[in-house]
Design a protein around this nucleic acid. Structure first.
Lengths: 132, 132
DNA sequence: TTGGTAATAGTAATTAGTACTAATATTAAT
DNA sequence: ATTAATATTAGTACTAATTACTATTACCAA
């Protein structure tokens, strides 16, 4: 039951994310999609982002500060989060799935996945922002 | 300027976290401290948790779902977050700081740190909760 | 002890996200 | 094509988590 039905809105959201290299927030998705679909509602954006995340078609990135970001690229990779401008960027390095195995040896529940985020100052902010 | 002044409330919060093996939320800290200091306010708890985090005396754990948790143990270690009961537990395994070096090679900003969280079902929930 | 300022309690406000509902869109069966 | 069943939507109301504001209180150096 609850078979999935096509929706133009969901399709747009998925395509929008697929066409971006950055990692927009729900708010950004909403603003951009609204240029083509002015009647889409923010709730619809949130609902579909959550649904697509659950289906595994996109990834949710929780930065630990501010709103969640979303990624249309579901291949195994890590993210860098700038503590100054809060932008999220890809970090194209070999993944380190061996830590999953190590973790499993040290834990008595079911480990299903892991997330590694890197923090610091991005190139732009390193230049501008010499404080702290 | 803005020299730090002693406060009984901040001291309690720090001691409370130091004496726990789990990783309470701000709300839990508030509830527990209130038994000894019934007039402490939730805002004070939030403010001091943020301040202590900034000072590096405690750690904030953002789970990506629900409220932040806090850890009085600032030694390098990782956390496991249960997707069912949302409890946070320690994962005592060798840290993998070599990934910092790898990451630095692949990124042109300043990488200052990283966080790895593991997700899945904890032992308790594996038993109870066979769904999903 | 007093003066300056940091910190607090209590409350109001904000942010990010979720829930609700009547109307609309999609799909499968006629 | 028409209809029926139901998933989805827009729009709005609401909630959870956290932050901001302000008058008062606590700390501490002179």
């Amino acid at each position: 039951m609850a078979t999935l039905k096509y929706s133009r809105q969901r399709e747009s959201i998925k395509n929008f994310l697929a066409g971006r290299k950055d990692h927009p927030t729900a708010e950004t998705v909403y603003t951009c999609i609204r240029e083509e679909q002015p009647r889409i509602s923010l709730g619809t954006v949130y609902r579909n982002l959550a649904l697509l995340t659950e289906l595994g078609e996109i990834k949710k990135i929780s930065t630990g500060d501010g709103p969640d970001h979303f990624d249309g690229d579901i291949s195994q990779h890590h993210h860098f989060i700038c503590r100054s401008c809060h932008q999220v960027s890809d970090l194209d390095m070999k993944s380190i799935d061996s830590i999953m195995d190590t973790a499993k040896e040290h834990f008595s529940g079911e480990i299903e996945g892991y997330v590694t985020n890197f923090y610091g100052l991005c190139e732009n902010c390193t230049k501008k922002n010499k404080n702290t």
